[in-house]
Simulated assay, not measured.
Amino acid sequence: MGYDISFHPVDMRLAEERVIPFLAGHGRDDDLDDLIADAVRQAKVRFRANAWGLGVRKAYDGSDFDTSLYVWGRPFFVTADDPTIVAETVVRYCNSTVGEVDDLARSQIALLDPALLKHVEPDLNGTLPADEHLAVGFRWKLDLLREAASAVRAGLPTIRNGDGDEISAAGALTGNAQFCLVEFLAALLPGWIERGKAWPTALAEHATTDGGSPFSDNTPLFGSLCTEFPSLNWESNWTIPANYAIGGYAAPSNIRSLRNWLSLNAEPLAAVGDQWDDRPYVRKALRKIDEALALAELTGSAFVEAAEIYIPMQGTMN
């Protein structure tokens, strides 16, 4: 099976102060309502921004427009060249209302080709679900894991999932906490999309590089869960082990050194990826990784690699 991979800045302060305590069963059931509402707003911003990217694609008629970067790569619709400007533009989208998206998207078209401005309209094929349905989509997994944590505390072995099937409470919590955390945080601070095997820890494993890799295993994504539920089997990874999984982690304090390491080792890392996939796309993947790291650096976030947070063929976009 192929991999829909992604590169994510992760707001660890938000994770540790808000989301992980919620998953652990603390506080009230409505404690994340403000974050859910923000995720709904950003979903609508993202949909409108993506429509502009698709509109530019149509205007270019499939030529001279890098869809793997501008549509199925960067979040929203960003055309700047400098990683710092890319990161700043993503933050502007994250903080925008739907009504502000058009002007921001037009500014990106002007960067790409000012002559296109009079020829491009957003491609509005497809519709978004209603706000309440979007909200359910963002929260149902969080609610399920919160229920699982409460069941474990109460000594109950099982819970029922959304289909009514009985599942292991402990297994639901330990097997899904990291993925659900990253998936939800990505609705508030998005990642970059790629496809194939070009996640950084896999490249590093097969390349001869200078300097030690700044990656660690992804235990920090469990936060307090490991200590609150010490009898459970919490498995962490150094790299992406399978589809629908989270891979290597870099702490906020290591983002700058990780960017430097990727720059220093770009050639051996790219050479490994090109051998695997028989196409010279890995340099672009490294560019996307660096842009995601630039956003992590700008926002004081951590970084993780992941698989199947986004699945473009199913309409799951950044």
Rank of each mutant, 00 (worst) to 15 (best):
G2N: 13
Y3N: 08
H8T: 05
D11Y: 04
I20F: 10
F22E: 02
A24K: 08
A24S: 15
G25Q: 10
G27D: 11
D30T: 07
I36L: 04
D38S: 08
F47H: 11
N50H: 14
K58V: 13
D61V: 02
D64G: 11
D64T: 06
T67A: 14
G73Q: 09
P75I: 08
F77Q: 05
V101Q: 06
D102K: 01
A105V: 04
A110M: 11
L116T: 01
L124H: 08
N125L: 10
T127P: 01
P129V: 04
A148Q: 10
A148K: 07
A149K: 03
L156F: 04
D163G: 13
S168N: 00
S168A: 01
A177E: 08
C180E: 15
L185A: 05
L185N: 05
G191I: 04
G196V: 06
K197G: 06
T201F: 03
A202C: 07
E205N: 10
T209F: 01
T209H: 07
G211Y: 02
S213G: 08
S213H: 07
D217P: 07
T219A: 14
L221M: 13
G223T: 03
S224T: 12
E228Q: 09
F229Y: 03
F229D: 03
P230N: 11
W234P: 09
W234K: 11
E235R: 15
S236L: 06
N237R: 14
A242Y: 15
S253D: 09
S257H: 03
L262P: 02
L262I: 10
S263A: 12
E267W: 00
E267Y: 05
L269P: 00
G273L: 07
P280Y: 07
R283N: 14
A285E: 02
A285S: 12
R287I: 08
I289S: 03
D290Q: 10
A294S: 08
A302T: 03
F303A: 02
E305H: 08
M313K: 15
